Amino acid sequence: MTIAASDDGVRALIEELQSAGNLPADCLRALEAVPREWFIPARMWVQEIADGTYQPVDRTEEPDRWLAAVYANRVIVTQFDDGATEWPEVGDRPTCSASMPSVVVGMLTELDVRPGHVVFEVGTGTGWSAALLGHIVGAQGKVTTVEIDPVLAAEARKRLEAAGFTEVDARLADGVADVLPDRVDRVIATASVRIGQFPYPWVAHTLPGGVILAPMRADLASGPLVRFVVGEDGTATGRAADMQVGFMELRSHRVASDPVGAQRFDDPSAEVTYTDLAPWVPLLADDHRWPIAVAVPSCRVNVWERTGDRPGVAWLRDPLSGSWATVVPERKGRYVVRQFGPRRLWDAAEAAYRWWVERGEPPLSAWEWTVTPDRQSVTLPPRSGR
């Protein structure tokens, strides 16, 4: 669709978001007042074709295509490889993006931010979310947003100032290590947090009854957007919201890449056992994967499809211990398991999955997250009546 003017684009985007469900009044007013195009660079990357590859788009050369992409409900990548890859080249890892508008609106709804609130945002990115927050909290509230990348921070600050959001305090800072503003009502992270590494200062600086919204992840699984509520005792407890998100990691939580499946899947040094559990069942569905991610949080997975003479293979690898496992079909209903290293990864994965099945296959929203000054846990509370 070609969009002739930005006003048309704003209206079309709002209509699309409204068609998917109720759009809170504060979010609606913010979307009308803060056009997304104000915060998208002239050069960007978008996924426009079925194979999911990123395509460069330049506003100067293709203004209609650029504007149509800006007002589509899609992710726009604004940086690859921490800025090492320059437009129009496509890099290996997206490191900054403008999230899908439906995700932004969903997160603002879960955050329940209101006029007069003091908000701390971790991950300024393009600055659009900070501007939306600034519009919602109004003159009586305050938004502090931090960005660890100096180039991104400077660009976002310029966009916020140009858009008139001078009251939004946009800082170059590490949202994990640096000092937070005093006593806030809301914290929102737009980068994923590893389980067990939730920054307790976010809790300590949030008023009792305040909300912290953060996407959580392990090496094996990502996506649960967890809504924490801070208690009077300084403990934050949370449940996963009813939406899946995909965010880049906090830079301080990144780990080095470690290829899964680099060695032979039939390595003779491995211990051989058998299972009747098809590995694709627990490893390829979000709800199924999560109990395994909690049981072996540093485990990574890869699944090879069957091609030619190579059988389908499920790989698991733990870079911390050097352990690995493969599961390969032998015949219908029987799979060969090879495991190597101090951890028996498939044994742990299968036990966690079967435990979850015995519990009735509860969804992600059933898990309970707890963060205290000296302990962090992800648990599945007992079923009622048991």
Rank of each mutant, 00 (worst) to 15 (best):
A5G: 14
A12W: 08
L13D: 01
E16S: 14
Q18Y: 00
Q18C: 07
G21P: 05
L28A: 09
L28V: 01
A30G: 03
L31Q: 02
A33F: 03
V34Q: 01
E37S: 10
W45K: 05
W45A: 06
D51P: 07
G52P: 06
P56E: 11
P56S: 12
P56Q: 11
P56G: 07
T60M: 11
P63V: 08
R65F: 10
V70I: 13
R74C: 06
I76Q: 05
V77E: 06
V77M: 08
D82W: 10
G91A: 14
D92K: 14
P94Y: 10
M100H: 09
M100Q: 11
V105C: 04
T109F: 00
T109E: 13
L111M: 13
D112S: 14
D112A: 15
P115C: 11
T124K: 08
W128L: 03
S129T: 12
I136Y: 01
A139F: 03
V146L: 02
V146P: 00
A154C: 09
K158F: 00
K158G: 03
E161F: 00
A162W: 03
E167N: 09
D169W: 01
V179W: 04
R186Q: 09
R194W: 13
Q197A: 15
P199F: 08
P199N: 10
W202L: 10
W202I: 04
T206K: 05
L207V: 15
P208G: 13
I212Q: 06
I212N: 07
L213M: 12
M216A: 07
M216N: 00
L220H: 09
A221M: 14
L225K: 06
G231L: 12
A236K: 09
T237W: 07
A240F: 07
G246K: 03
E249I: 02
R251N: 09
S252T: 15
H253D: 12
A262D: 11
A262M: 11
D266K: 04
D267V: 08
P268E: 03
E271L: 14
Y274I: 09
W280Q: 09
D287P: 01
A295D: 05
P297T: 10
V303E: 01
R310C: 07
L316K: 02
G322D: 08
V327A: 10
V328P: 01
V328F: 05
F340M: 09
F340T: 02
R344F: 09
L345C: 11
A348K: 09
A349T: 12
E350D: 11
Y353V: 06
W356A: 08
P362Y: 10
A366G: 07
E368F: 04
V371F: 02
T372L: 11
T372V: 14
P373A: 13
R375D: 12
P381W: 10
P381C: 06
R383Q: 15
